[in-house]
């Protein structure tokens, strides 16, 4: 018992101060929001698009990256001869609309806006989610799990992952939605009482990830259920997921800001 108390003391209080305090420091190699400089693009160059494993980059009519498809592998930056693509460290990536995930120079960045007032009254202080992995590789699942540990403690915000769709206000979906899981996802969604929301976490759940176009998958959650929040990444950093959830619930002061 004494050893237990000693260990408890030594381990200390380790829950993040964020969002009241600063966010946790990320590795300087972390790949967050990309920064594009299309004026550097050599004429007719398509090296970035050719290197992208998931066809997330277009060069016409302007250089743009679809963060919904992006694996954040940075092969594009490595392939670019002119340094027109750089990977910044901003982890705020989640969006309410699929088209808001398109990044282009000069295009306004629309971070996820809050739910409407009625939904916020219902979910703003208590959001119970059922997680459904529909072909996820256990990386997104693992970093969703992390949010419930004492370091992140999403219980602070009234957010909880619950064991049954009957207890849930919505679903958090990972994976590209495999053919073999589609029926189970649909049934789980139907078992949630309305009004309900769906959060798609990770490149697979947004657009199929590396498996986009495979006949074995359905290229994301939106193929099967209506999606209210898209959280890009492969997998998204826990901070990216938390940022998206808090913005959705209107719990970040700077809800609709743009960068």
């Amino acid at each position: 018992m004494l050893e237990l108390l000693r260990t408890r003391f030594a381990q200390g209080h380790r829950t993040l101060a964020y969002p009241a305090g600063p966010p946790p420091a990320l590795s300087d190699r972390f790949r967050g929001h990309p920064v594009l400089a299309p004026e550097r693009c050599p004429d007719g160059c398509r090296e970035c698009a050719a290197a992208c494993p998931t066809e997330a980059i277009r060069v016409e009519p302007e250089l743009a990256i679809d963060l919904g498809r992006c694996l954040f592998c940075a092969e594009c930056a490595a392939a670019c001869p002119a340094g027109a693509i750089a990977w910044g460290g901003d982890p705020r990536l989640a969006a309410r609309e699929r088209e808001d995930l398109l990044v282009a120079a000069g295009r306004e960045v629309r971070l996820a806006r809050a739910l409407d007032e009625k939904a916020r009254r219902l979910f703003g202080r208590s959001l119970k989610l059922r997680q459904v992995s529909a072909g996820g590789c256990n990386a997104c699942e693992a970093d969703v799990n992390v949010l419930s540990t004492l370091a992140w403690d999403i219980g602070r915000f009234g957010i909880q992952v619950v064991a049954s769709p009957r207890h849930a206000d919505g679903l958090l979906v990972t994976g590209p939605v495999t053919g073999n899981m589609r029926e189970a996802l649909r049934k789980t969604w139907e078992a949630v009482a309305p009004p309900k929301i769906v959060i798609a976490v990770g490149a697979c759940a947004i657009a199929g990830g590396p498996f986009r176009g495979h006949p074995e998958v359905h290229d994301g959650a939106a193929s099967t259920v209506p999606v209210d929040l898209f959280v890009p990444g492969c997998p998204p950093h826990p901070l990216t997921i938390l940022d998206g959830l808090l913005r959705l619930l209107g719990r970040l002061e700077s809800g609709g800001e743009s960068r």
């Binding site: 992995s133 072909g135 590209p176 495999t178 498996f211 495979h214």
Partner: peptide
Amino acid sequence: GYQHRGLERALAGGPDRR
């Protein structure tokens, strides 16, 4: 089998960028 994404089928013919 619920997680089947067609990995081995897609790996044939590679290596490629995926």
